[in-house]
């Protein structure tokens, strides 16, 4: 197998059949452990997604469970970030994108329904980006930005939120003495945790993370991963990563995408020890992608 890695691509190009097998929600490993019997919070139902004329996602169909960490892995351009951005409709910002078929339901509500206010949706589904993007304001103002948008300006409430969010993001002890200094003075890892704190300040239910550690050094990465581990007590987390070990380290469920299709979704342990699809194994063993 390792002698001919080039043959992998053609012989394992996903077919409708192979996708069908793994998309069966009654995956034995998923049901085995009671840990995974959590209720479904996001239901992705046969979603096709288009950038203009080109189809980026093909019939994606799986549930995301509440208060678990779900990781999307796959080679670049496989559609994992696209799918993530569908979940809080950040794709709306890109001209010419549309959901061609299927629906995405969060807590049973189709988020692409015309009656959905995308602003309310994004308050409930927070997002952390690949490149940490603190605003060039003070740490304090960064955290309360979302609250101020909602018209909340009482000092006591803001102070309380700042402390709660920073503690939640394991950053409080590091910055408590300089809350009013510029957020840009923080290190890269601190900035990313500040972005997480900013996201949890508006009390979302779901936090989407788009390669949150790709710009961080290993120590900062470990801190963010530990933070993700803590956050899953209270939040449902969906993380996109192109670092497979990261998916292994911090997720409960791993979904593997390739060429816009979901190839396999299962518990992270199962994916990493005994993936049922050849492509998954090739990818996580580093033989392609």
């Amino acid at each position: 197998m390792s002698t001919s890695p080039t043959t992998i691509m053609d012989e394992t190009t996903p077919t409708a059949q192979s996708v069908e097998v793994v998309m069966n929600p009654a995956s034995p490993a998923l049901d085995k452990s009671s840990r995974f019997n959590a209720p479904t919070i996001i239901d992705i139902d046969n979603v096709d997604f288009y950038y203009g004329q080109s189809k980026a996602l093909h019939g994606i169909n799986f549930p995301i469970k509440e208060k678990l960490v779900t990781a999307f892995i796959g080679p670049s351009g496989c559609g994992k970030s696209t799918l993530l951005r569908c979940l809080n409709r950040m794709n709306d910002l890109v001209d010419g994108t549309r959901i061609g078929a299927g629906s995405i339901k969060i807590s049973g509500v189709d988020i692409y329904d015309p009656s959905v206010d995308v602003i309310e949706l994004r308050k409930r589904v927070g997002m952390v980006f690949q490149k940490s993007n603190p605003f060039p304001k003070s740490i304090y103002e960064n955290i309360v930005y979302g609250l101020r948008l909602q018209g909340i300006n009482q000092k006591a409430r803001l102070d309380e939120t700042v402390e709660r969010s920073l503690r939640g993001a394991a950053l409080w002890d590091e910055v408590r003495d300089r809350l009013h200094t510029s957020a840009l003075g923080l290190s890269g890892g601190q900035q990313q945790r500040l972005c997480i704190a900013r996201a949890i300040a508006v009390e979302p239910e779901i936090i989407l993370m788009d390669e949150p550690c790709s710009a961080l050094d290993p120590i900062a990465t470990v801190k963010v991963e530990e933070l993700i581990h803590q956050l899953k007590q209270n939040y449902t987390i969906v993380i996109v990563t192109h670092n497979m070990q990261q998916a292994g380290r911090c997720s409960d469920i791993t979904a593997f995408f390739y060429m816009g299709r979901l190839i396999e979704i299962d518990t992270t342990e199962k994916i990493f020890t005994n993936p049922s699809q050849r492509q998954t194994e090739d990818y996580i063993s580093g033989r392609f992608g």
Partner: peptide
Amino acid sequence: VPQGFRQGSLALGATKWQTIWQNVLPY
């Protein structure tokens, strides 16, 4: 102005105009 400022703001539930007025124009 970095695209991240806009996305970060929108992802926190800001409207487009709030984002531009508070987080793009000043910079």
